[in-house]
């Protein structure tokens, strides 16, 4: 197992290094930030001074070298726009995204797996057919449209829930959270539902497919022949046997939603990192873009690694293969 961890860690280092080069070169290739950061009526002297100060007069490889050596020491530079350290900027936005995404992905998984198991267990019942029809909707209706409809219905027409913002926050462990106050929860509700719908549909389909397949196996027949109740069979046998694909998709969804909840965050003006990256791209705030994308890569590497560890926890065959 230790060998496995070390191997994965080295892989992660290579992935991150490659990612930093790609991102740095990619960002360098699009537009000139000086045109956006400096007012067009500034004098040539001010322009040149700014270019020198930002280090934009040096060759690309030198810029990358400076960035890389600083990054290794935990310094990802300062935002061109906000003029504060990038890490601090991202860190201040991260909790908002984190709580929104965790709430929506976790509840989509719990609810989706439950509904999916039911739909797979009784595929011919009317409730199952309704669940499956709704899951098709969840897949095919565009997220931004659902978001707008949610605002229109629950915020504008009914006036039950706020249309945007984080609401009241409470400090815990030095970070401000919304989910700990009633007002905050009311603010989270709509964006969380908006984010969750697609994942819910996907989890339903995954759990249903797994359930239908597993219920036909001899393992289940043998358990039934031994007199196990249906509830025990579902809880103790089925749930474990369908869990591998569910954990995989959970990890991938968690990563991609954390990094790119952009649409929902924009519609509900949720001050998270998704909104930050979109704003940074529009003003070519290079340090923010580079740091954000590299951190996203780190996030995916970490999540994939965790998923692999969870696999070994669930499935003894995978565990055996790794120690061998």
């Amino acid at each position: 197992m230790l060998g496995f961890v070390i191997q994965r860690f080295l892989q992660a280092v290579v992935v991150m290094a490659a990612m930093s080069v790609i991102v740095f070169v990619g960002v360098y290739a699009i537009g000139n930030p000086v045109d956006i950061v400096i007012p067009p009526d500034a004098t040539q002297d001010i322009r040149e001074d700014a270019i020198r100060r930002l280090g934009l007069d040096r060759p690309l490889w030198e810029q990358y070298w400076i960035f890389a050596t600083n990054a290794l020491q935990g310094d990802f530079g300062r935002s061109f726009v906000y003029n504060i350290p990038v890490l601090e900027l991202i860190g201040s936005r991260l909790p908002a995204t984190l709580e929104l995404v965790l709430i929506s992905v976790v509840s989509a998984t719990v609810l989706g797996v439950t509904l999916g198991i039911y739909a797979g267990y009784r595929p011919d019942s009317r409730i199952s057919k309704t669940i499956m029809a709704l899951s098709v909707l969840g897949f095919s209706v565009p997220s931004f449209w659902v978001g707008l409809i949610l605002i229109l219905t629950f915020a504008v027409s009914l006036g039950w829930l706020p249309a945007g913002g984080r609401g009241e926050t409470v400090e815990l462990l030095g970070i401000r959270w919304s989910f700990l106050t009633l007002d905050g929860l009311a603010h989270i509700a709509l964006p969380a539902v908006n984010l969750a719908l697609f994942k819910l549909a996907m989890m339903i389909r995954l759990a249903r497919a797994g359930t239908r397949e597993i219920m036909l196996t001899d393992t289940i027949k043998f358990a039934r022949a031994a007199g196990l109740s249906e509830a025990t069979i579902l809880r103790r046998h089925l749930l474990k046997m369908i869990s591998i694909p569910i954990v995989t998709v959970f990890g991938l969804e968690l990563g991609s939603t954390l990094a790119f909840a952009v649409v929902t965050e924009t519609i509900f003006s949720w001050p998270g990192v998704g909104k930050l990256i979109i704003d940074s791209i529009s003003v070519l705030d290079r340090p923010v873009m580079v740091a954000y994308l590299i951190l996203t890569a780190a996030l995916f590497v970490t999540i994939n690694f965790t998923v692999d560890l969870v696999f070994a926890l669930i499935d003894p065959r995978i565990r055996a293969r790794r120690t061998a």
């Binding site: 001899d218 043998f222 358990a223 022949a225 046997m241």
Partner: peptide
């Protein structure tokens, strides 16, 4: 009770 043909498929691998 009942036992089946394929012992690889009857026991839960997990």
């Amino acid at each position: 009770s009942m036992i089946f043909q394929d012992p690889i498929a009857t026991l839960n691998p997990m």
